[in-house]
Amino acid sequence: MSTQLSKEWPLWEVFIRSQHGLAHKHVGSLHAPDAEMAVNNARDVYTRRNEGVSIWVVRAADIVASSPSDKGALFEPANSKVYRHPTFFPMPEEVKNL
C-alpha cells in the first residue's frame, strides 16, 4: 500500500537515453506525486525540450543498490551532453575569460 505518510511528493530517480545513446543514464532526481507527473517533470528538468529521448523514472525507494564495497560503479558520471542549445554570443576577440 502506498499511502504517503507525509504529504511530501516522493523522490524519483531519472534515467535518460539520448536520441543516439545506447543505454539510459542516471541524470539525477526530482519530486513528483505519481509516475506520469514524474515523466512530465523529467522531460522539463532533464531534457529541456530535447525531443526523441527516452525517459525512465523510478521511485527512489524502489531502487535496490549493491553495497559500496562491490567493485564497479553504480552510477556513471554525469555525461557531458549539453541539454540546451544556447545562442552563443560572439564575444569580441579582445575580451578574455568569457
Partner: peptide
C-alpha cells in the same frame, strides 16, 4: 507551487 512546476511553466512560456 513546486520547483518542478516552475520549470514546467517557464518551458511553456518559452515555447
Amino acid at each position: 507551487p513546486a520547483l518542478e512546476e516552475d520549470m514546467a511553466l517557464s518551458n511553456v512560456a518559452l515555447d
